[in-house]
């Protein structure tokens, strides 16, 4: 080992450098810049107001504003809605498509397609389905006895409309990760349980789920981190409305920065969301490391 690893230490560092440099310039630097902006009044709508240092006032403004807190709450609400459904549905579908029956590999493949579709296209096709008066979704649901639902025009339903589109796109992700984990489980505990005569439910809750737990935890963290990025679908479906019913953090930042041109406030909000994400990412890596140790 030693020769390759030791003699070339310097070359390895040279290999590593460009990536570190690029990532620093394209990620860390803009983040620091966002930090810098967040302490300025940077109001593009008021061209002649100097961009002065304003201390914590941008932070004070967003943390004191009900709009920002509302956006934060909405983000977590949407996260809770999508994650819980994706977890249950994803595991359920994984149990179906990992049965050793003809056609299952094809089904697994087909079900992965939604993940690879551009989120903006996902938004558009669900807009097509939800479209007031015309969309097919209410038509399909009428067969199941539902009344017409004002998906994107009602404050009660709009968040669900967004959640459903996200659930459609990302349940396959939980399915795929769970299926991979299920297929790598050792068959022996199952055979033992079968001989001992345990019920299926018992086997699932006491044998399968505990073994899946680390994978499910990882998958949920990745989804939670992604929930902070959700943007395109909302942009297409509701643009944060009706009212502010679907204004999540990313929409809030967008509107502050590009609708009201208050970039300082937008940057302050960005920074708050960065802090939350850092916490999530740290927890995710901790959970990964714990799995690797155990």
């Amino acid at each position: 080992m030693a020769y390759i690893r030791k003699r070339n230490k310097r070359i390895f560092l040279i290999f590593l450098l460009p990536a570190m440099l690029v990532l620093f310039l394209t990620t860390i630097y803009p983040m620091l810049y966002a930090g810098y902006l967040s302490f300025r009044s940077y109001d593009l709508a008021k061209l002649f107001v100097p961009r002065v240092f304003v201390g914590w006032s941008n932070y004070g403004e967003i943390l004191g504003s009900s709009e920002f807190l509302h956006a934060l709450v909405t983000t977590f609400k949407l996260m809770a809605m999508t994650l819980s459904v994706q977890l249950v549905l994803g595991v359920g579908i994984a149990l179906i498509v990992t049965q050793k029956l003809p056609g299952m590999p094809l089904a697994r493949t087909l079900l992965m397609i939604p993940m690879m579709i551009s989120p903006v296209i996902v938004g558009l096709v669900w807009l097509f389905l939800y479209f007031p008066e015309l969309g097919y979704l209410n038509y399909f649901l009428s067969f199941l006895g539902f009344d017409s639902i004002p998906w994107i025009t009602s404050t009660d339903w709009a968040l669900w409309a967004i959640a459903i589109a996200d659930i459609w796109q990302w349940t396959p992700f939980v399915m795929m990760g769970t299926a991979a984990a299920l297929q790598s489980l050792s068959p022996e505990p199952y055979e033992a349980a079968m001989i001992d005569g345990n019920s299926r439910w018992d086997v699932f809750t006491r044998v399968t789920l505990p073994q899946l737990k680390p994978v499910l935890v990882s998958l949920m963290f990745l989804r939670a981190i992604d929930a902070f990025k959700i943007y395109d679908i909302i942009f297409v479906l509701t643009k944060g409305g009706p009212g502010d019913s679907t204004e999540v953090l990313s929409m809030f930042i967008y509107r502050q920065s590009f609708t009201f041109w208050r970039m300082g406030v937008g940057a302050a909000a960005s920074f708050v969301s960065l802090v939350i994400i850092v916490v999530l990412i740290t927890l995710f890596f901790k959970s990964l490391n714990r799995d690797q140790v155990s």
Binding site: T27, P30, A34, K229, Y231, S250, I253, A267, I277
Partner: peptide, 14 residues
């Protein structure tokens, strides 16, 4: 893993 929206403003300005 960082949300892109958080750096859109700096990118735009830069």
């Amino acid at each position: 893993m960082f949300p892109p929206i958080a750096v859109v403003v700096p990118y735009y300005i830069i």
